[in-house]
Simulated scan of single mutants.
Amino acid sequence: MTFEPVLPFQGYIGWRFLERTAEAQQTAFSQSAPVQRATDYFRENIGDIRTASDLVNDRQLLSVALGAFGLDDDINNRAFIQKVLEDGTLAQDALANRLADNRYADFSRAFGFGDSPVPRTVLSTLPTEIINRYETQQFARAVGEQNNDLRLALNVNAGISDIIARNSTNDGRWFSIMGNAPLREVFQTALGLPSSLAGIDIDKQREVFQERAQAVFGTDDIAEIATPEQEEKLIRLFTIRSEAGNLAATSSSAAALTLLQSTPRLFP
C-alpha cells in the first residue's frame, strides 16, 4: 500500500492522536488508488464465485478476502485456505474449528462454502460486508507498519464485537479472546500477564484472565468490558504497559552494550 498514516507519537499519546484522526485517515486510505482497485475488483467479481476453489484460484479476490480478516500472510497457502473454506464451521472437526486462531473460523463462516449448499457469495450484501472489513483491517495494517501496538489497539473494538456476536456465554467469549492472537496480546499485556501463561492448561488460563479482569476492570464480563469506557481503559493499559516494556528492553540492551564496550580487551 502507498498510503502512510500520520503517526507522530508513540504509546497512549499516539493512540489518542490516532483516535482523533482515524476517521479522516481511514477515508483517505480507502480512497487511495491501490485500495480502490482492489475493492472495485472484488465488488465486481465475487458474485461469480461458487466454490472455494474458484476463490483461491483468483489471487486478487483472495487477497481482499484474506485481508478482511487479517490473514494476509496466508495468500500463498492456497491448499490450506481451500481446506478451511471447504470444511466450513458446522462440524466440530472442521479444520477452522481445530485451529487455535479463531479468525479462520470467522473467515470460513463469512463465505459459507462448507456451511451451506449455496455460498454467501450470491448475497448482494456480501461485497460491502467484506470490503468494509478489508478497508478497516488494511488501514490497521498500514498503521502497524509504523507501530504495531497502535494496529492492535485499532482492532480491539471490532474484534470484541465479533466475539460477542458469535458467543452466547462469557466463558466462550474468553476462550475466543484467548484464541485470537491480536486480542490475546492486548488483553495479556493490559492485564499484566506473562506470555508463559500460554503453557498451562487452557481452563486454568481462562480462570487467570478472568481473575485479573475482575481486579482491573471490576468485572470479568466481556459484554461489560466492551463498553466505550472500559475499552478505552483496556487500550490505555495496553499501550502504556507495552511502551514501558519496550523502553525497559531498549534500556537493558543499551546498558549491556555500554558494559561490553567498557570492558578491557583481554588480548592485544
Rank of each mutant, 00 (worst) to 15 (best):
N155Y: 02
D72Y: 11
A254W: 08
R43D: 12
G172A: 02
E207H: 05
A226M: 02
L237W: 01
V56C: 00
Q210M: 15
S253G: 09
L55H: 00
F3H: 03
T2N: 13
A213N: 03
L90W: 04
A226H: 05
A68F: 12
L90A: 11
L257E: 12
A140V: 02
A215D: 14
D149A: 14
L247R: 03
R133C: 02
Q25I: 06
A140R: 04
L266W: 08
T27V: 10
D40I: 06
F139V: 02
K83T: 14
A24W: 09
A28T: 10
F139H: 03
Q146H: 04
D93C: 08
Q230A: 15
R184H: 10
F42H: 10
V186G: 04
E211P: 03
L191D: 00
G199F: 11
I81S: 06
A140F: 05
N76V: 10
T169R: 06
I160R: 00
F187V: 07
S252K: 10
E86C: 03
N57K: 11
I225S: 05
P182S: 09
R16I: 14
R241Q: 06
G70C: 12
A142S: 06
N97V: 11
R20M: 11
L71D: 12
W174D: 09
Q10D: 14
E135S: 04
F107H: 13
I222Q: 01
Q60K: 15
S176K: 06
V84S: 07
G112N: 06
P34V: 04
F29C: 01
R133Y: 02
E86A: 15
S30W: 04
A140G: 09
